[in-house]
Simulated assay, not measured.
Amino acid sequence: MSEKNTSTSMNIRMNKDVKLQAQKIFNDLGVDLTTAVNVFLRQSIRYKGFPFDVTLHEEPNATTMAALDNAEKGIDMHGPFDTVDALMEDLNA
């Protein structure tokens, strides 16, 4: 698609704090918010979607949180194992 020297305006609404934080980041990178939005849109066109993963992250459940807590404290830790037999012995304990 050939781009001639044409442009158009777009108005969007966003949270004021989000805008200010984004402007600071992009200013630190040497670009203005308009340029950053244009980069995002061009990348979206190139990738035919978001140019990054968009996922829902679930909070860890109680079992995972307990395991993380134990790992930080060095409690109920297993391994490393030198042999498969040692691993199997620990699993069967």
Results as ranks from 00 to 15, higher is better:
A86R: 07
Q21M: 09
G30V: 03
V39P: 00
N38F: 00
N70P: 02
F40E: 02
M1H: 02
N70H: 15
P60C: 07
L91M: 15
L29M: 15
D90I: 05
H57S: 11
R46E: 13
E89G: 08
S7F: 06
S44V: 00
D17K: 12
M65S: 14
N38Q: 12
E3K: 11
M77V: 13
G30L: 01
N5L: 09
E58M: 10
A93V: 13
G49A: 04
A93L: 12
E3G: 10
E72S: 13
V18C: 01
T34E: 10
N70G: 02
T63C: 09
F26N: 03
H78K: 14
E3V: 10
D90L: 04
T64W: 12
A66I: 11
R46A: 10
M65Y: 13
D28P: 01
V37Q: 05
R13A: 07
L91W: 15
L29H: 07
F52V: 12
A93Y: 14
Y47H: 07
R46H: 09
L41Q: 11
S7A: 11
R42G: 05
R42A: 03
V31G: 00
Q21L: 06
A66P: 09
D85Y: 06
P60S: 11
V84K: 14
D76T: 04
P80G: 03
T35S: 12
T64S: 09
D32Y: 03
E59F: 10
P51S: 01
K4Q: 11
M14A: 11
F52T: 05
G79Q: 06
E59P: 08
Q21G: 01
Q23L: 09
M1Q: 05
S2Q: 06
E3M: 08
D76G: 07
M14C: 09
F81Q: 00
A66R: 15
F40M: 06
R46Q: 10
M1W: 00
D53K: 13
A67F: 08
N5W: 03
F26K: 02
T6C: 00
D82Y: 03
L20T: 14
L87Y: 05
T64C: 04
D53E: 14
V54P: 01
A71N: 14
I25E: 06
N61G: 08
I12A: 03
A86H: 14
S9T: 14
D32E: 10
F50S: 08
